[in-house]
Amino acid sequence: MADIVSTAVRSRMMSGIRSTNTKPEMVLRKGLHGLGFRFRLNDRRLPGSPDLVFPKHRAALFAHGCFWHGHDCHLFRLPSTRTDFWLGKINRNREVDARAYTALRDQEWRIGVVWECALKGRTRLPLDGVIDQCSDWLRSDRPELEIKGQ
Rank of each mutant, 00 (worst) to 15 (best):
R44G: 14
F37K: 08
H69G: 02
R139E: 11
G70A: 01
I131T: 00
F76Y: 14
S6D: 10
D141Q: 14
Q150N: 04
T20R: 13
K148D: 07
G129D: 09
S49V: 05
D141T: 15
W115M: 10
R38H: 14
S6N: 05
S11M: 01
F76L: 04
W137A: 13
L52M: 15
D51A: 07
K56I: 12
R29F: 09
F62I: 14
F62P: 13
A98E: 00
N42G: 11
G121M: 03
E146C: 09
P143K: 15
G65R: 09
I111Y: 06
K56D: 13
T22I: 09
G36F: 09
L35H: 10
C117I: 07
I90T: 00
A8M: 03
A63Q: 07
L52I: 14
V114M: 12
L75P: 01
L119N: 00
L145V: 08
H74Q: 01
M14Y: 03
A63L: 06
M26S: 09
D141F: 07
A59C: 11
F85W: 06
W68C: 08
A60Y: 08
W86P: 01
V114L: 10
R18A: 15
A63M: 08
N93D: 02
A103H: 02
M13W: 08
H33S: 11
S80M: 00
H74C: 00
K120S: 12
F37E: 04
R38D: 07
H69F: 02
R142C: 13
A60I: 09
R124G: 00
E144W: 02
A59I: 15
R94P: 01
H33G: 07
S19I: 02
S15L: 00
L52Q: 11
G16D: 03
Q107S: 15
R92M: 00
F39N: 08
G129P: 04
L28T: 09
P55W: 12
Y101L: 09
F62M: 12
R44D: 06
V114D: 08
E108I: 08
R105V: 10
V113H: 04
V53C: 13
P55Y: 11
G112A: 14
T83Q: 07
T22S: 07
E95Q: 02
A100T: 04
K89W: 02
H69A: 02
H57A: 14
G70H: 03
A60H: 11
K120N: 04
D141V: 12
V5I: 15
V5N: 11
R122L: 03
V53H: 10
